[in-house]
Amino acid sequence: MNYKLTIGWLYPELMSTYGDRGNIISLAKRCEWRNIEAEVRRLELGFKIEDLKKCDILFMGGAQDKQQSIVSHDFSTQKIKTLKRMIEDGIPGLYICGAYQFLGKYYKEADGTIIKGLGILDLYTESRGKNFKRLIGNIIIETRIKKLVGFENHGGRTYLGKNIKPLGTIVKGFGNNGDDKTEGAMYKNSFGSYLHGPILPKNPHFADLLIQLSLKKKYKQPFSLAKLEDTLEWKAHEAIANRLGIGL
């Protein structure tokens, strides 16, 4: 049987600031190498809801403030509803940095201004203003699929609600807010995180988890993926762990 996954890339032009394209490349290549057809569908400004519905994995990256406000305008009630239904339905997705914040309830600026989020995930983000340091640096977290490494760079502090679990706990770095040792969030098959790097190329096990979940969802049967030769990926992974003084 020929398997195929459609990877939906939400706002590749606007929500793509920190090399997040690497996540799309990683997913597509790792499918291709296993003979799974991967189609990357770019969901640009003004995309059709029908196109979103066809996707088997979703990805959205971070953005600069101005770009994010353009995206906000494009996210109609109907688009939000569709995305929410897909997330609730268990369509796997990865949402990094700005996108992660955006899926939450709101972003509160230092002066108290509330910017509404999509309200899909039970979390909110606060900015404490210029007098507080941005959380910047290499980061390593422990998750249920072993460690993940990356680079974080965010001013906002994110807090999770009762209905959502963190993606992992901090081994070294700041994570969601620098206080509670949590990083990212998971809800059904959706994952939010502050990890750039980008996250998937240096964490091939995480890329494979997303692929596996999508295949399982789409073809309604458990999948075990063929093993790939990942020496370089793991060496890049280890380089960060070593830098932070963490053994694997």
């Binding site: 690497g22 290549k29 190498w33 296993r34 030769e229 370089l232 890049a236």
Partner: peptide, 26 residues
């Protein structure tokens, strides 16, 4: 300093030769 990050980048930028697993090697 980040030689493996660059190596991974080049690996993923290379065209897939064919679909056999061995060829995913950089």
């Amino acid at each position: 300093d980040r030689v493996y990050d660059m190596a991974v980048r080049i690996k993923y930028a290379s065209k897939t030769q064919n679909s056999k697993l061995k060829s995913q090697n950089y």
